[in-house]
């Protein structure tokens, strides 16, 4: 009997719930953590990579930069970065859709799409899959870091039901509860990007399952304004840059070899 209202997204349970959507959200809370913090002069995103290993060929994603550094952080438009948690295949399809929507806006209006508009476009799509028959919802939550002239820097979160909301700092994926309470304690309204980077990395290091942070487990991106052109500048860090950043923040993992040498 318990399964009667589970199988279809389009059917309410007698308590008025849509189980498939709740399951999708449950799936996301087991996915790699994605964390975002909004500062006055920029937005910071970090994500935990789950698929790792010595044999994984990362040569294609070595560069970071335009397309993203690999699995979870993507450039959606020149003024927007997205961090995804959940089913990677679903996420790829949504990222593709977002990029098309952003370019279509650019074609029609000759301006970068306002951040909330692109979030709405994706949420319309996500909502559709919770209502029309025979389809499963997208198993993806997304954090959007963006800039537009209307509201300057912004951070949004959208979930599989198609709800979205704006945040000063938030977290999706595994351990999001812990991360959010840490962020709540440490977030300050006066933070700048440098402080936000510190907060993001500290929170990530406390909530991630692995004991040490390193570029093989972490993706990182910052959206700021170019000081000269005053245009938004998205920077998705590559592996070397992430390691350098962790080192400068004092969170880099200790080199085991050197440790042993000093011990002996």
């Amino acid at each position: 009997m318990a399964r009667r209202y589970d199988s279809r997204t389009t059917i309410f349970s007698p308590e008025g719930r849509l189980y498939q959507i709740e399951y999708a959200m449950e799936a996301i809370s087991h996915a790699g953590t994605v964390l975002g913090v909004l500062a006055a002069d920029g937005v910071v995103l970090a994500a935990e990579k789950k698929v790792t290993g010595k044999l994984l060929d990362l040569s294609a994603s070595k560069q970071g930069g335009y397309g993203g550094s690999g699995e979870k952080i993507f450039l959606l438009n020149s003024n927007m970065i997205g961090g995804v948690a959940g089913l990677t295949a679903d996420a790829n399809s949504l990222v593709n859709y977002a990029r098309s929507a952003a370019q279509n806006h650019l074609l029609s209006y000759d301006e970068d799409i306002p951040v909330e508009l692109l979030v709405q476009r994706l949420c319309d799509m996500k909502q559709g899959y919770t209502q029309f028959g025979g389809l499963r919802p997208f198993g993806v939550s997304i954090l959007y870091a963006g800039y537009d002239p209307h509201y300057q820097f912004q951070l949004y979160h959208s979930d599989p039901s198609g709800n979205y909301s704006g945040w000063k700092a938030t977290c999706i994926g595994s351990n999001n509860g812990t991360a959010q309470s840490l962020l709540k304690q440490e977030y300050k309204d006066t933070m700048n990007v440098k402080e936000a980077i510190g907060l993001v990395l500290r929170t990530m290091s406390k909530t991630m399952d692995s004991t040490t942070l390193g570029s093989e487990k972490l993706e990182f991106a910052v959206l700021t304004l170019d000081p000269e052109t005053k245009q938004p500048k998205a920077k998705i860090y590559n592996a070397a840059e992430i390691d350098a950043l962790l080192k400068s923040e004092g969170l880099a993992k200790k080199d085991e070899d050197t440790e042993m040498k000093t011990a002996s």
Binding site: D110, E116, L117, Y151
Partner: peptide, 12 residues
């Protein structure tokens, strides 16, 4: 939409 269309976007 929540944000009004800017003059340049309207022109385009």
């Amino acid at each position: 939409h929540l944000v009004p269309l800017s003059p340049s976007a309207s022109a385009a």
